[in-house]
Design a protein around this nucleic acid. Structure first.
Lengths: 123, 123
DNA sequence: CGGTATCCTCATTGATACTG
DNA sequence: CAGTATCAATGAGGATACCG
């Protein structure tokens, strides 16, 4: 119980797990995509973001953003223009997720991407 | 609607998204951890795996493994020894997830890990 | 050892509508 | 534009027990 030092670096504690910890933050269904879009397309307004994500409802987007904000991954900025806009962007913590998001996207590209032909039958 | 080629490589189609595709495969709560353990500790039997994962019930582990098997990420091998054992291991596809899993673990390490001191106050 | 079978609860989503 | 309110539906996850 006291020899955590013999364990590999990627799995430190007895109970604690870096994977579990990470997925607890960004493991929700839409979180990776949202972060991805913010990473790629810079700060976005609510509706712009919703269009980027494709398929998400305003309710779920709102909840997701609340969650990500609470976890200090996303920051919400009210831009006092006219009319007032809101801008969602990544915090430094959020931006630091780039390798993770990139790994997800990359793997999907390389291993799943395919089937533009099949898509034709679906329309 | 026809100019998908102007989009960056990591976000190809109009509807299709590599992130969404990837998380559809490994986005379930326990999947990354399970893959991580198989990645790290080689083939494992059911109960061994359950102990590695820590906190998962046999039911959920079973369901997760079924799912991962169906998705060709994990393979189940019956070892005809005596008594019969079962070995779970990663397929080539599963093994190819290493960068993703590693990214998750790595990020957790670097950004979440700490707070052994704070833990004392929670107990 | 390697699982299933139940049952139950909570979290997440989806659809829709409405608001300032 | 940027959300919130409601409500229904799904389903993932947990506890426990049991089986070959």
């Amino acid at each position: 119980m006291s020899e955590t030092e013999q364990l590999p670096a990627w799995c430190p504690g007895d109970g604690w797990c870096s994977i579990t910890a990470t997925t607890a933050l960004v493991g929700k269904k839409w979180h990776p995509v949202i972060i991805h879009r913010l990473l790629a397309n810079g700060p976005l307004g609510f509706n712009d973001l919703q269009e980027e994500v494709d398929g998400i409802s305003s309710k779920v987007l709102s909840e997701s953003l609340d969650d990500l904000e609470e976890k200090r991954v996303v920051s919400r900025t009210i831009v006092s223009e006219k009319p007032v806009r809101v801008e969602y962007s990544l915090t430094d913590l959020g931006a630091s997720l780039e390798p993770v998001i990139f790994a997800l996207a990359d793997w999907g590209e390389q291993h799943l991407e395919p089937v533009e032909e099949e898509a034709a039958s679906v329309v």
